[in-house]
Design a protein around this nucleic acid. Structure first.
Length: 337
DNA sequence: CGCATTTGACCACC
DNA sequence: GGTGGTCAAATGCG
């Protein structure tokens, strides 16, 4: 441990921080009697995974008894049995480690389209959204006129926050920025990015207690849901994730109270509009999505967007699998209720 | 000089 | 092999 390099310490810290945050989430779930067993079990798995990785980094082997079918990040445990060979470049060594791997993470993601004042002149500086981001890359995308910028939360290394976002100008309308958010902030920083302005005050000028942390977790969860629910986005038909299937828009009855009404939004009204859907049960922002395939992660949702009129909500959902795999019972759960 | 951004290279995934 | 996501050295900026 004493000869551990800085990046190793950072990665270890990441894992431990992640484990702590997940434990806090689990604590919240345990205090909510109606929360699903699956969600709790999923969190337990993730906590175990985080600590097993941390232990592995300390050179302590992980028991193989319990299989870990799908690692949350899709990464293998980042340790080679043999010392790195001399021929390998330092860069490659580092890229093999958890936290610095180039392997793509399977994080929940959702699209936000934002109108900016002009196509030119503004550069590609994304509008302020309440969080602090650091740009870590830019890429020309095939078939796109404009490059895609890659941003990570600035608290990634300090607090292990894995939130990312990608910003790109729309091909059709350069005054529209398409922002793909990936992952949920676990850093507790930032403001109510997804909340309508003025609807919620900014948090925490002071150190957080455990209960404040819980509130933050809860609030962040609600932000994601609210973003999904009230987003001023486009119908799903216009979303552009060609590699995945897209579920047609669904209409809901109007609702004024998110938490309460979401539980009632369930099957009936949805099935009326789209019969061949869908997963039996889904937590939009939590951790539970029971699917026939036994997959159970929010990351299965590629994007979610919504528009609203006086009498209805139109919600577009995109999943990385075919709609006809779904069974017809489809409900939204509000994890906090 | 320190920090943020840019940019070419690397690499996983399809 | 092509594409997109990430890394990290180089560069720019305050």
């Amino acid at each position: 441990m004493e000869n551990m390099r800085d990046w190793e310490k950072k990665t270890l810290l990441d894992e431990l921080t992640q484990g702590r945050e997940l434990a806090r989430q689990l604590e919240i779930y345990l205090n909510v009697p109606s929360s699903s067993v699956e969600a709790r079990e999923f969190l337990v798995q993730k906590i175990k995974s985080a600590f097993e990785k941390a232990l592995a980094m300390c050179g302590i082997s992980v028991p193989v008894g319990e299989p870990e079918p799908s690692h949350p990040t899709g990464h293998p445990i980042p340790f080679s049995e043999s010392p790195p060979s001399v021929s390998r470049s330092p860069r490659r060594e580092e890229s093999d480690r958890e936290g610095t791997s180039r392997k793509r993470e399977t994080l929940p993601r959702w699209l936000k389209r934002i109108q900016v004042s002009s196509a030119m002149g503004l550069g590609d500086i994304p509008p302020e959204d309440g969080y602090s981001w650091r740009k870590y890359g830019q890429k020309e995308i095939l078939g796109s006129k404009y490059p895609r910028g890659y941003y990570r939360c600035i608290h990634k290394y300090i607090q292990g926050c894995r939130a990312l976002k990608q910003v790109q100008r729309s091909n059709e309308d350069p005054t529209v920025l398409e922002i793909v958010y990936r992952g949920i902030h676990t850093c507790g920083h930032g403001s109510s990015v997804f909340l309508p302005s003025g609807s919620q005050e900014i948090q925490e000028p002071h150190r957080n207690t455990v209960s404040q942390q819980q509130q933050l977790q809860q609030q962040q969860s609600e932000e994601v849901l609210l973003n999904f629910w009230e987003g001023r986005g486009v119908p799903s038909e216009n979303l552009d994730f060609p590699q995945h299937s897209l579920v047609p828009s669904l209409q809901f009855p109007s609702t004024s109270n998110i938490g309460a009404d979401l539980n009632q939004v369930s099957s009936a009204s949805l099935i009326d509009n789209y019969c061949s859907m869908s997963p039996s049960r889904m937590n939009i922002f939590g951790v539970n999505q029971n699917l026939p395939s036994s997959e159970s992660q929010i990351s299965e949702i590629i994007s979610a967007d919504a528009t609203s009129t006086a009498n209805s909500r139109t919600v577009g959902l995109e999943f990385p699998f075919e709609p006809d795999e779904f069974d017809p019972n489809f409900t939204f759960d509000h994890p906090g209720s």
